[in-house]
Design a protein around this nucleic acid. Structure first.
Lengths: 137, 137
DNA sequence: GTAGCTGCAAACTCTTTGCAACTCT
DNA sequence: AGAGTTGCAAAGAGTTTGCAGCTAC
């Protein structure tokens, strides 16, 4: 169930009350929450949790690759959990993040990197779009 | 020659000494300088230029789409000038930025966005890689 | 018992802004 | 002359950190 908790235990982290709360929030998150969102949600469960702990926890999870940090086009970070490989399409009007996967794209990126003489280690792809019309404009 | 200066004039900006310096630096930049790099280069030409002016100028240029702001995976912005459409491959060991273009990729992105019901407005693609071996490792 | 974790507040980094002086046009 | 621009210093946002006390193991 709580995948994150298990994996944190494996990594040798102490399981404090604060971590339990944060990990549960992340495990059940279906969006790409900002640090502040995680903090707000955590506070509503245990109001003594501090921002510093949220930052520290997310940094730890990031180092353990249990979470992915994104910057999209904002001035703050958002985190993603439960990720299989996929990319994002961000709705410019609403800010909604849609996920997608595409095999063809994966192969192509690999190929491009190789042609340039590189081994592909990581990559990001973000599409920014506007909903196609049902009406006009 | 100085494409940026012309286009700023067209946009109705006053051509101050500071702007002249900054625009010339950008026009001749062959990299993707951070605000600080631009500031350093500008200072070595006219030591009275302030950081605030560099920020303000880059923000203006960004609004006019004469420059593109990138975040790559750092905590600060880098700017790109003289851009035709292309993407970046960042060398994880050296930080070097390589540019590439790929038609197939462009078409694919357009297609993906449309399939999701969106009109593609903008997008970013960054590859992070390690140089393929000439030696071993 | 102790290494590791926490909250707090202060500090840091990058960026923006209010203001009075100055400068293009 | 007047709107736009500048430098400075202060303020903002987001994030990190030193420290003394607390807690899981």
């Amino acid at each position: 169930m709580s995948g994150l908790m298990d994996r944190c235990a494996e990594a040798g982290l102490k399981m404090t009350e604060q971590r339990r709360v944060i990990l549960q929030i992340l495990d059940s998150a279906e969006d790409h929450p900002s640090v502040e969102s995680v903090y707000d949600r955590a506070k509503s469960v245990d109001s003594s949790i501090s921002m510093a702990t949220v930052y520290r926890t997310l940094n730890l999870l990031d180092e353990l690759d249990l979470v992915v940090r994104h910057e999209f086009n904002e001035s703050f970070a958002r985190y993603e959990v439960n990720m299989e490989h996929h990319h994002h399409l961000i709705d410019l009007e609403t800010g909604e993040v849609h996920e997608f996967q595409n095999e063809e794209l994966e192969a192509l990126k690999e190929k491009i990197a190789n042609e340039l003489g590189f081994e592909l280690v990581d990559h990001t792809l973000e599409l920014y779009g506007r909903k196609l019309d049902k009406s006009s404009k």
